[in-house]
């Protein structure tokens, strides 16, 4: 178990290093931030002055070295646009994003897993068809469109829910559904197929041969085995949620890191984008690590692997 965890941590650090390289060079392809920061028609000397001010005139590898050594100490530099510490800026936006992701995750799991189980147990019956329909809608409608339609319906026509911003539970309802629906669909489909596979297994047959009540056969013997891929996917879902939250946060003017990233890219605010991506990457890597360990905790075959 200890070796397993150490190996995973080593791999995680390597991925983060590669991510830092990628984002550092890719963001610099988007163009010159000085052009956006200077007034229109600024002279070449003015632009050069801005570049010097932010250290953009240095060779790329010097810039990368400076970025990475500072980042290791938690210093991601100053935002070009907000002129404040990027890390503080990021941390001030993070709670809102985490709240949204947690709500969307809860929505997707609470809806996806039970419907998936019912669909598998009542395969090809009414419930199964309803679940398939729900999943198909979730998978085929883009989250921004779901968001806009919900705003139109629940905010404009009915006036039940606030259309944008944050602060109350009511503000959270629509963004978390818009973000979580597609994941509820993933969870439902995965739970269904995984459950179907497990229900056909020999150990479920043996559980029935033992004369166990159906609730115990499904709730104990089948469910726990069927849950393994769903938990793995939940970790990967969090990865995707961080990415799609950019769109949903922009639609609902949700003050999270997704919107910050959107602004950072629009203004070519290199430190903001770098910090945002690297922090997102760190979270993803840590989540995957935790999922791997949790997975090992559920499944003794992995736990005892040497």
């Amino acid at each position: 178990m200890k070796r397993f965890v150490l190996k995973r941590i080593g791999l995680a650090l390597l991925s983060l290093f590669l991510l830092s390289l990628t984002i550092f060079f890719l963001i610099r392809i988007t163009g010159d931030p000085a052009v956006l920061l200077a007034e229109p028609g600024a002279s070449k000397a003015d632009l050069d002055a801005i570049r010097t001010q932010f250290g953009l005139d240095r060779p790329l590898w010097v810039q990368y070295w400076s970025f990475i050594t500072h980042a290791l100490r938690g210093d991601f530099g100053q935002s070009f646009y907000y002129r404040t510490d990027v890390f503080e800026l990021y941390m001030s936006r993070l709670p809102a994003s985490l709240l949204l992701a947690a709500a969307a995750m809860a929505f997707s799991l609470l809806l996806g897993i039970p419907t998936g189980i019912i669909a598998a147990v009542r395969v090809n019956k009414w419930w199964d068809s309803a679940g398939k329909m729900f999943a198909l809608l979730g998978l085929s409608m883009p989250s921004f469109w779901v968001g806009l339609i919900m705003i139109l319906f629940f905010s404009v026509y009915l006036g039940w829910l606030p259309s944008s911003g944050s602060g109350t539970i009511l503000h959270l309802v629509m963004p978390s559904i818009a973000l979580g629906w597609v994941f509820a669909a993933y969870n439902m489909r995965l739970t269904r197929s995984s459950m179907l596979e497990v229900l056909g297994s020999e150990y479920v047959k043996l559980a029935r041969l033992k004369g166990l009540p159906e609730a115990l056969v499904i709730g104990k013997h089948a469910f726990k085995n069927a849950l393994i891929p769903v938990i793995t996917l939940a970790g990967i879902n969090l990865v995707i949620m961080v990415n799609t939250a950019i769109v949903v946060e922009t639609v609902f003017a949700w003050p999270g890191v997704g919107r910050l990233l959107f602004e950072g890219i629009s203004f070519r605010d290199f430190p903001v984008v770098q910090a945002n991506i690297l922090m997102a990457g760190t979270m993803i890597v840590v989540t995957n690590l935790l999922v791997d360990i949790l997975y090992a905790f559920i499944d003794p075959r992995i736990r005892f692997e040497r």
């Binding site: 297994s201 020999e202 043996l206 041969l209 033992k210 004369g211 013997h221 075959r301």
Partner: peptide, 23 residues
């Protein structure tokens, strides 16, 4: 259900697959 496992029991073919790996 009260008969299965209690009055009539059965041993399945595949010992590798008929025990639940998680318990």
């Amino acid at each position: 259900r009260r008969i299965r496992g209690k009055r009539i029991a059965m041993i399945l073919q595949d010992p590798m697959a008929s025990l639940n790996p998680l318990f």
